[in-house]
């Protein structure tokens, strides 16, 4: 399986590429009134409106910093049997790694949002946390938006 790596201020994360539609540069978004703070705004993707979330805001670390490597990851969010396209703003989304399912170990720590396994092999010192889209982005918010 192929994982896209990206970072926040304090941690490294990985996302399974099976969800990813396309990685695009950071674009201006239309702000949605009365939406939560982690909803950055709306994006026009080939005539289709796509809501964009700020990953750093979702993680409670404030707004993402606008680096060159800060990009919007468009992905298919599975909901009610179908999928909805959403965007995540992520820092340093510049690398991918290939790994097998067996390399990924469970962290053993159960958090409220149900984070996925941590892969220690990628780097000797840093821990990369694999996250599940469904657990990170609240479903009710996505539903409300569509």
């Amino acid at each position: 399986m192929l994982l896209l790596l990206f970072e926040t201020k304090d941690g490294r994360y990985a996302l399974d590429s099976k969800y990813i539609v396309e990685i695009i540069p950071l674009l201006n978004t239309k702000r949605i009134p009365a939406a939560p703070a982690f909803v950055k705004g709306m994006l026009n993707y080939h005539g289709m409106p796509v809501p964009v979330f700020d990953f750093c805001a979702l993680e409670g670390e404030g707004a993402s910093r606008p680096f060159y490597s800060t990009r919007i990851i468009l992905l298919n969010y599975p909901i009610d049997g179908g999928v909805k396209m959403v965007g995540i703003i992520a820092e340093r989304a510049t690398d991918v790694i290939k790994c097998s399912e067996s390399d990924i170990r469970s962290s053993g720590i159960l958090l409220e949002k149900g984070w996925g396994a941590v892969r220690g092999e990628y780097d000797q010192e840093e821990i990369v946390q694999l996250f599940d889209v469904k657990q990170v982005i609240p479903e009710d918010v996505v539903r409300e938006l569509f």
Binding site: L2, I23, A93
Partner: peptide, 21 residues
């Protein structure tokens, strides 16, 4: 050059994702 490198990185990422698919 940086922009170009960034673009290239982006392209390679998307390409890698497409190749995976």
């Amino acid at each position: 050059i940086n922009k170009l490198a960034d673009q290239t990185n982006l392209l390679s990422l998307n390409a890698a994702i497409e190749a995976e698919k």
